[in-house]
Amino acid sequence: MNSSETLPPSVDNGWATRLAHAMHEAVTAQDAGLGRTAGELIRHGGKRLRPRLLFLSASLGEADEALLVHAAAAIELMHVGSLLHDDVMDGATTRRGAPSVNSRWGNAHAVTTGTHVLACAMAELAHLPHGVVSTVTEAAFTLCSGQLRETEHVYDVDLAVDEHLEIIRMKTATLFGLPCRLGAELAGCDPGHVDALFRYGQQLGIAFQLTDDLLDLLGDPVDLGKPTGTDLRAGVFSYSVLLALRQTPGGRLAALLRHENLSAREASEAAALVRRSGTVDATRELARTYADGAAAALAELPEFPGRDALAVTARRTASRME
């Protein structure tokens, strides 16, 4: 899926090109060396899903396109910076089908580059109204708190599923709800409509993460652009894994996952145990529930140019693992 595939003609007006330029300018403005590394990551692209959510949401009202680009750049840079930090914590060797920054230049360089990118995201906020800056700052705190909570629970086979879902809300759903809210706010939308779009984004984000975690268990590494089983080996246990652990506490799966540095064979065995437990289907069903919640929030809104594309995004997210 390319950056503008789901955008209706009235919304797709070259924003992806302007966004890429704004992000490149942001990361190279202060430090050329760090900018080169960050710029390479930006050139590898990705779906640009979060900026797309912002532009689609903004089509509910009227907004200054330059402000939308700065807001989209800030959000996508926050996302890129968090990925750099995640890759270090997970020991990831690839990202989007290419060697990860930490595998090429080491953890110290990856962490420094990630922090640089996050600082660049904050610099983009200088172009935005004060109220919007406060919204993004609050989201940044939530994102960091979610990352900390996840770190506190690595290799925790007793992690409650409710706590796991709260971590997803903080880490992933925050960066889905934020662009929807910002797009609507910058477009001058009614507060009730802003709230509905924010809820759409948050529900979508949880559905997205649940299915993404399933891909780590079941997906094709070539299609994903990264190895599968990464989260298992890093001690970050998904909803399916936690449900499977509840079924047989103290069993073979728990014995495998209690210790660090799983071998490839052990990780494969653990993944097979999870698949046989039946919890993959339960995870799919929960993802559909959250996707339906996103659609329900969208149904509260009047017709607008981006509405159908947002609805399609929710449906596609729920069907990624069907």
Rank of each mutant, 00 (worst) to 15 (best):
R265A: 15
V80S: 08
S4F: 05
A22E: 15
R43M: 14
R258D: 05
D190K: 12
A271Y: 00
Q202N: 12
L49I: 08
G225Q: 09
L128D: 03
V136F: 07
A98C: 09
P99I: 01
R320M: 04
V154P: 01
S4R: 09
T313L: 15
A119Q: 11
E260P: 10
F176G: 00
M78Y: 11
H79N: 07
H24Q: 14
T279C: 14
R48Y: 01
L165Q: 10
M78E: 04
R307Y: 04
A267F: 06
H116E: 08
A295G: 07
R96V: 07
V136P: 04
I168K: 04
A20E: 15
P221V: 11
L118P: 01
M122K: 08
Q202E: 15
G229R: 05
H164Y: 15
L125S: 01
P191E: 10
H85I: 13
R149P: 01
L217M: 06
L118Q: 13
A234I: 07
A196Q: 08
D292T: 09
D223Q: 15
L224G: 00
Y239K: 02
R265W: 11
D281H: 12
A73F: 05
D220A: 10
G91Y: 04
R36H: 10
R181C: 11
D31W: 09
H85S: 10
L182T: 13
S263I: 01
D156G: 03
L41Q: 14
N107E: 15
R316A: 13
S103I: 01
A66H: 13
L60G: 13
V111E: 04
A295D: 08
A314N: 06
F198Y: 13
